[in-house]
Design a protein around this nucleic acid. Structure first.
Lengths: 256, 256
DNA sequence: AAACAGTGTTGTATTTTTGGCAACACACAC
DNA sequence: GTGTGTGTTGCCAAAAATACAACACTGTTT
């Protein structure tokens, strides 16, 4: 006895209704799930009793109900970015073998709020709770390119590769925006390269960035795009986990 | 055969989980619903299989799952304010006996996008699609007091009661903000009084206003507060229908 | 250490619940 | 009128869900 069949069917109906524009009729649902009309009818009524679907008064078609909204919104209130990001950080470590980090924008800097360390002997140590500059870290550049982070008055150099020229940096950010992930090529610490990508919340607003950092010997320039797409994919997965719907444009428009 | 029992139980579990801060254990769920642990365990697993709940890896407690967020967000995209407002407009007509209207902010004016007419012989006629000034209509004042509507350069008078003095109007808007609904006391049309209240979306942003308008003979100054609270209550109900959670502050803050 | 009180999960047999067939009520097109 | 399409409801066989266990596991207490 693996699954409760009737519950599973009810949940399948909800998933079906998600993908229909104008709701679905009883028969239509029944056909899709290869069950009898009568079963579909009863399942739908039960779902309706609890507000998970609702029936259009006139057309008698069913569509998703307000209870899903209530539960979904409720969930959002309880979410903390960090809790939800953690498995994705682990995923990054597994796939890349490098340390993974989560940062948010705070006080015009990148605040590291979580990390998962790789098992490699040679690895980048960094501490949770530290603030890093935006202009020379991958996580920071994400805030600049995708969020509302703004540049400080002075672009302080940390290594000889640190970009201190505003227009050069602007061009780099445009490039970053285009490909979907940011790169730090030994611009903050010698011998360390980082890749990071943006994380959006349910509203489409940037809430943070996740990325990896590793020794330049392993994170080579040849492989950096490969790392980039892994980081981007993982970040996208996290975003959709937070309720971000790719189909919606960023910056949210008025309904109606 | 009224309800599918096992589906109903699954849905009840979701409702239960909504009200628990740190999720619930199998036994706890079973006790709350007066069912056996084993049943609860299997129901929870089924819910988990479809992402409606998820089990904490360590504590093995269950909490609401990401699928609810997906479905909820999806629902929001399909919602049109007008469709959802309609039954509430009917409710207003039923309770007040006056015509009810729905308006949104457009081109710095109040755009009437729906109405439900009362059956009274003497009633206010207005047309869907018309733009009305903000400073002398109840619906418009809602945009000014609760939304980001802004005043025109000139406060054009329509009746001798139209407020044309900016500071007087500002004071009135402060009052409006305090009580939660706006009043138009024959300021646009002679013999017509209106009451309106704000409608918020899931993000807490103002998306429109609903209200009633009726002949001054019926909508008397003595009864106007009574109408006001009816309109406000109905508007609040509509807002929560759109996913607006009163517990969250207006203007949405960053998560984490 | 060992017994204990929790937890959550899994087998199994009974029985309740469910699901499909059919008939029905209704709407709409022709 | 008939036709086809809805969605809903009775009914009974049949299957699925349930409750009672026993089980594995964790952490705590004695």
């Amino acid at each position: 006895m693996a699954e409760i069949q009737s519950l599973a069917r009810g949940l399948k109906i909800l998933n079906l209704l998600e993908h229909s524009r104008n709701g679905m009729g009883t028969t239509e649902v029944a056909n899709q799930l290869s069950i009898d009309k009568s079963s579909a009818s009863r399942l739908l009524r039960t779902l309706a009793n609890y507000g998970f679907v609702e029936q259009d008064e006139h057309s008698s078609r069913y569509r998703l109900g307000p209870q899903l909204l209530t539960l979904g919104q409720h969930l959002l209130n309880r979410i903390t970015l960090r809790d939800h990001a953690r498995p994705y950080l682990h995923e990054l470590v597994d796939k890349t073998g490098e340390c993974a980090h989560l940062a948010i924008l705070a006080q015009r800097q990148a605040l590291y709020i979580d990390q998962v360390e790789s098992t490699a002997a040679l690895r980048v140590e960094s501490e949770i709770g530290t603030l890093s500059p935006l202009h020379c870290t991958a996580l920071g550049k994400v805030m600049l390119a995708f969020g509302d982070g703004c540049l400080p008055d002075e672009l302080r150099p940390f290594t000889h590769r640190t970009v201190t020229d505003r227009s050069t940096l602007e061009a780099q950010l445009t490039l970053t925006d285009g490909r979907g992930y940011a790169i730090d090529d030994e611009e903050y610490n010698y011998g360390v390269r980082c890749v990071a990508a943006p994380v959006y919340d349910h509203r489409g607003a940037l809430v943070g960035a996740i990325g990896i950092s590793g020794p330049a010997a392993r994170v080579t320039l040849e492989r950096i795009d490969e790392f980039g797409s892994v980081v981007k994919d993982t970040a996208d997965a996290l975003s959709s986990r937070l309720g971000y719907d790719e189909r919606r444009k960023r910056g949210a428009e008025r309904s109606q």
